[in-house]
Design a binder for these strands. Structure first.
Length: 424
RNA sequence: GGGGGGAUACCAAAGCGGCCAACUGGGGCAGACUGUAAAUCUGUUGACUUAUGUCUUCGCAGGUUCGAAUCCUGCUCCCCCCA
């Protein structure tokens, strides 16, 4: 059995860990949990570090527990937030939870010896009335202790509601409940959760004199200082309806060399030796971007599947590879469909396809593709316009004769600027 | 309150009666190179079915002139100096 803490350590996934955690986990098969907010109907790659923590935990023989914050999600964690959070509608929370659950099944084994499980803290908070809470939980933690937490301290100037203030107690009680009822001995989380987790450890110690542990992962940063997991389009989601497999794949392919070295350890399950070999060959031939490819392939396949990965790869080949007209002509329909998720689409009506080439690309498409005919002409003169991977050299191109699958045209301005025209 | 300077395209900044759709730099777009990178070099950068052509544009509104970004009048806004 692998040493969980050592495993995370070489992968650079530990920010803080309570003393003797490693020893405890080596000697005991136990359970550990992470709380997830059901604030969205999908996980995003910002959650991935946490998920991978649980994956390693399970691989080390322990039982991962996913705690859906059905109750806490209704309150809002002040950590890292500068403003009071909006409450979420209860129905939405339940709906979100169901969708998130499916996503976890791609990472964790929910069957067998050390199966993963999903719990919702609503089950124990629902019928927990205020007075009992104050008597059995509130009694053990002083306000002074709570005020000392950064998450609270940072909000004293701007104001914090009692509801958010009490968040750490609620989360602390989660830990206590799981410790008491589910043999959960450790809680994981991002580094911003350290304070909240320790409140749980403290509660367990004060109420029952029990032993428990905490481990947090570092905030994932990018070498250029930008926020990890964000693109121009916003979050990168695991749900293919929110982020297409192609875009998901592209996110990882575009990671910088420096970040790739870091990310491959965190987001893939490759062994140390393999990663070292890959990193070495990457450094020898950086233009091949071996790490980015390995990273993108493994994660995309896990989150989506082999087939969708292949489509994402073919799509990328068309858009960014050295593909020529022939490659484009031989494309299968599923890659074509994927293209429509990859690039902006403009729809035109069937009868419009026979319109004049220049009118079609300007007026008829509401100047979405080209804002003027001059711009279009200029681009053609600069040798920058391609349709279906074929350079357009003059302006009497017959769009209608070049439709793919009777409805698609791939228009390309320069190298990377694509528009997909769909005839309907 | 008194005196002076300014407003030009995405930004900065020249132009001060015709050769101005407007120098130049940045940015944008495209081409070459490349790793879907960085740097570099080149072209392009108001609109019009592509024109040694037409139209619109140099704070706003008028005027002078064959002709105005450029001169005059008024207005709006900005900056500086003195009080």
């Amino acid at each position: 059995m692998k040493n969980f803490v050592d495993e995370l350590k070489w992968r650079g996934m530990i920010h803080d860990v309570t003393p003797s955690t490693s020893e405890f986990l080596q000697k005991n098969k136990t359970s550990g949990y992470i709380g997830f907010d059901p604030t969205a109907d999908s996980l995003h790659i910002g959650n991935l570090v946490q998920i991978m923590t649980l994956v390693h935990f399970q691989k080390s023989g322990h039982k991962p527990v996913i705690l859906i914050g059905g109750a806490t999600g209704m309150i809002g964690d002040p950590s890292g937030k500068s403003k009071e959070r909006k409450f979420l509608d209860e129905k939405i929370i339940i709906d979100n939870q169901n969708k998130i659950q499916v996503q976890f099944e791609k990472f964790l084994n929910f069957k067998g010896d050390n199966s993963a499980s999903i719990l919702n803290n609503k089950t124990w908070f629902e019928n927990f009335n205020l007075l009992s809470f104050l008597r059995s939980v509130g009694k053990h933690i002083s306000v002074n202790y709570m005020m000392a937490k950064d998450s609270v301290k940072n909000r004293l100037e701007t104001g914090i509601s009692f509801t958010e203030f009490s968040y750490q107690l609620i989360q602390g009680y989660d830990f206590y409940w799981l410790w008491k009822n589910k043999n959960v001995k450790i809680q994981f989380g991002g580094s911003d959760q350290w304070g909240n987790i320790l409140t749980g450890n403290e509660l367990i110690r004060r109420i029952d004199g029990g032993e428990s542990f905490a481990l947090t992962t570092p905030l994932i940063t990018k070498s250029d200082g930008g926020k990890f997991g964000k693109t121009e389009d916003g979050n990168v989601w695991l749900d293919e309806k929110k982020t297409s497999p192609y875009k998901f794949y592209q996110f990882w392919i575009n990671v910088s060399d420096e970040d790739a070295k870091k990310f491959i350890k965190i987001f893939t399950l490759k062994e140390k030796e393999e990663i070292e070999t890959l990193t070495k060959s990457h450094e020898k031939e950086p233009h091949l971007r071996i790490l980015q490819n390995a990273l993108a392939e493994e994660i995309t396949e896990r989150v989506h599947d082999k087939q969708k990965l292949e489509i994402a790869k073919s799509t990328s080949q068309i858009l960014f590879g050295k593909s020529k007209k022939d490659d484009f002509d031989n494309l299968k329909e599923d890659v074509m469909n994927s293209l429509s998720t990859a690039v902006p689409c403009v729809k035109i009506k069937k009868e419009e396809i026979n319109s004049d080439f220049k009118n079609l690309l300007t007026e008829i498409t509401n100047f979405e593709i080209f804002s003027s005919k001059s711009e279009l002409i200029r681009l053609i003169k600069n040798n920058g316009l391609s349709i279906n991977k074929e350079k357009i050299l003059n302006d009497d191109y017959q769009l209608s004769k070049n439709l793919k699958f009777d409805k698609y045209l791939l228009l390309q301005k320069g190298k990377k600027n694509y528009t997909f025209i769909i005839v309907e």
